[in-house]
Each structure stands twice: as C-alpha cells, then as structure tokens.
Simulated scan of single mutants.
Amino acid sequence: MSVDAHRPLERPVIRVADLTGPDAIEVGSAVRAYLLQTELEKHQQERTVPDPAAPLPERYRREVETPAAAYAGHRVLLAQLEERVVGVVVLSEREGIAEIKRLWAVPAARGRGVGSALLDGAVHAAAASGATEVRLSVWDWRQGALRLYESRGFERVPSWDDRERLVCLVRPV
C-alpha cells in the first residue's frame, strides 16, 4: 500500500462485513494472515523452527475457508482505506458480554489508526447490542496490541483461559 506524501492521511472506514458476498474472501484472507502471523510468533517465542509448508492447524481452517459458517452469530467488521480492506475484527456476544475474537490490521496499513478504528468500532457495536462489557485476550509478547487495548480503557484481569502467556483484558461499555 503506497501513501501519497502530499495527501492527508485518510481515516479508516469501518463497516459491517457481508459474509455472503465478496467480503467473505477479504475476511478469510485477513484472518489467514492473522493466524499465520500468530503461529509464526508462537514458534519464535518457543524458539522452534516453523515448517513453512505446514498448513494452518485444523482448528483454524474453517475460519479461513468458510468465514460465513465459522462466524455465524458473530459480528464481523472491516476497515477500509482508499477502498481497500486493511483490517478485520470479529466480535462474539453472549449474555451481555462481547468478546473480541480476532483483530487484525494489514502490516502495511499499521500506524494509520486501523487497529484503533476497529477496536472502537467493536466497542460501539457491543454497546449498540446491549453488552455491558467487552473482553479480549492477547499474547503477552504483543506489546503494541496491549498498549492499544489499555489506551482504550481495557484493564488486565485474571485469566479465563489456561494458555500460558495469554493476557485477558476487560472494559465496561
């Protein structure tokens, strides 16, 4: 993604994804990038060498291959810059609690407010649906993401997940 130095930076546009149409491809592609990056980072943290030919673990394939089925009952928002999809956030809701399941900004678009806009869009969508809090989890090595979440009012709480190094955060709506 190139940026014209003479044009002011455009703010990301956040919209609800239509998973029955072309947005499904965009969501699958963004989620694939997110999951592959996560798997690579896990190997780096464990100091193991990933197999570049290895497919995504089975538990993730449905999200990439059939996002409409994988995210049925979820709210999926897309971020666009210059009419290009540059990010995605997946929000689930249950019993007044919304949970951000995936949040990804294309690396080339980072630093342009994409992550902040997606996070704000997810919180707004949670509030509009009547949720009283939003929660999420993030790996402790993702310090940039932790700073973003905490800057938006998320606070660390005891973990609801038994995976080591996963940080859980909550914020009221």
Score class of each variant (00 low, 15 high):
Met1Ala: 14
Val3His: 10
Val3Met: 12
Asp4Leu: 11
Ala5Met: 07
His6Asp: 12
Arg7Ile: 01
Leu9Ala: 14
Leu9Gly: 10
Glu10Tyr: 07
Glu10His: 10
Glu10Gly: 09
Arg11His: 13
Pro12Gly: 02
Ile14Arg: 03
Val16Leu: 14
Asp18Val: 09
Asp18Asn: 15
Leu19Glu: 04
Thr20Gln: 14
Pro22Ser: 15
Pro22Val: 07
Ala24Glu: 12
Ala24Ile: 11
Gly28Trp: 10
Ala30Leu: 15
Val31Met: 09
Tyr34Glu: 01
Leu35Cys: 03
Leu35Thr: 02
Leu36Arg: 15
Thr38Gly: 11
Thr38Arg: 07
Thr38Ser: 08
Glu39Thr: 11
Gln44Arg: 15
Gln44Phe: 08
Gln45Leu: 14
Arg47Pro: 02
Thr48Arg: 12
Thr48Cys: 08
Val49Ser: 13
Val49Ile: 14
Pro50Arg: 12
Pro50Met: 11
Pro52Arg: 08
Pro57Leu: 03
Pro57Phe: 10
Arg59Asp: 11
Tyr60Ser: 11
Tyr60Asn: 13
Arg61Tyr: 12
Val64Ala: 11
Val64Arg: 09
Thr66His: 12
Ala68His: 13
His74Asp: 15
Val76Leu: 10
Ala79Val: 10
Ala79Gln: 08
Gln80Lys: 11
Gln80Ala: 15
Leu81Gln: 05
Leu81Gly: 04
Leu81Ile: 07
Glu83Asp: 15
Arg84Gly: 06
Arg84Pro: 07
Arg84Asp: 14
Val85Phe: 04
Val85Trp: 05
Gly87Lys: 05
Gly87Ile: 04
Val88Leu: 05
Val88Gly: 05
Val89Phe: 04
Leu91Pro: 07
Ser92Gln: 12
Ile97Ser: 10
Ile97His: 12
Glu99Tyr: 03
Ile100Leu: 03
Lys101Pro: 04
Leu103Phe: 01
Leu103Arg: 00
Leu103Thr: 00
Ala105Gly: 02
Val106Leu: 07
Val106His: 11
Pro107Ser: 07
Ala108Cys: 06
Ala108Trp: 13
Arg110Glu: 05
Gly111His: 10
Gly111Asp: 09
Gly111Pro: 13
Arg112His: 13
Val114Phe: 06
Ser116Tyr: 03
Ala117His: 01
Leu119Gly: 05
Asp120Ala: 11
Asp120Glu: 14
Asp120Lys: 04
Ala122Met: 06
His124Phe: 09
Ala125Met: 05
Ala126His: 11
Ala127Asn: 03
Ala128Phe: 03
Ser129Thr: 13
Ser129Met: 08
Ala131Gln: 01
Ala131Asn: 02
Ala131Ser: 15
Thr132Pro: 04
Glu133Tyr: 04
Val134Met: 05
Arg135Ser: 04
Val138Gly: 00
Val138His: 00
Trp141Ala: 09
Trp141Pro: 01
Trp141Gly: 13
Ala145Tyr: 01
Leu146Met: 14
Arg147Met: 06
Arg147Gln: 12
Arg147Pro: 02
Leu148Trp: 01
Glu150Met: 14
Arg152Glu: 01
Gly153Val: 00
Gly153Tyr: 00
Glu155Leu: 12
Val157Tyr: 03
Ser159Met: 06
Asp162Trp: 09
Asp162Phe: 07
Asp162Met: 06
Val167Lys: 00
Val170Gly: 02
Arg171Gly: 03
Pro172Leu: 01
